[in-house]
Amino acid sequence: MIEQFTARAEAASAKVHAVADEAAAVHLVDSLRAEKTAAGLEVGVVRAAKGIAQTGTCIVVTDDEDVRLKTMLPEVSVILLDAADILPDLPSAAPFLRAEQTKGSPSYISFITGPSRTADIERVSAIGVHGPLEFHIMLIGGRP
């Protein structure tokens, strides 16, 4: 599933960084942030609750507006995902979604797959419309 997740996420223009553990992920995020900030780009970092192998998707609980905006406004979006949280396909996400939507407070769940994109002008694929231009996944324990 890790391989499929990686291949499908990259097919959707995400950059997947396989890292051994949390510490390695944090280290890589720090250096990425430094690099991008120096280039004048904003970086938003959040943590995914689940992944979906078949589509290369990260599922992020974004009930909190600040967390949500971190995935929307900055040019560079970084998501931390534990490889153990990868589900096989969309239907297998139903129990997670149901639990979130019946937890007793309203929820806003985001399925995010790659950077924002459009093909609205002459069907030319363009990356980075209203959301991130770059999309990085730190896949923890994701070394195949």
Binding site: R8, Q54, G56, T57, Q101, I109, F111, T113, S116
Partner: peptide, 10 residues
């Protein structure tokens, strides 16, 4: 396979 964003709001 899926769009960049699928949002569920309850």
């Amino acid at each position: 396979r899926i769009t960049s964003y699928v949002t569920f709001i309850d």
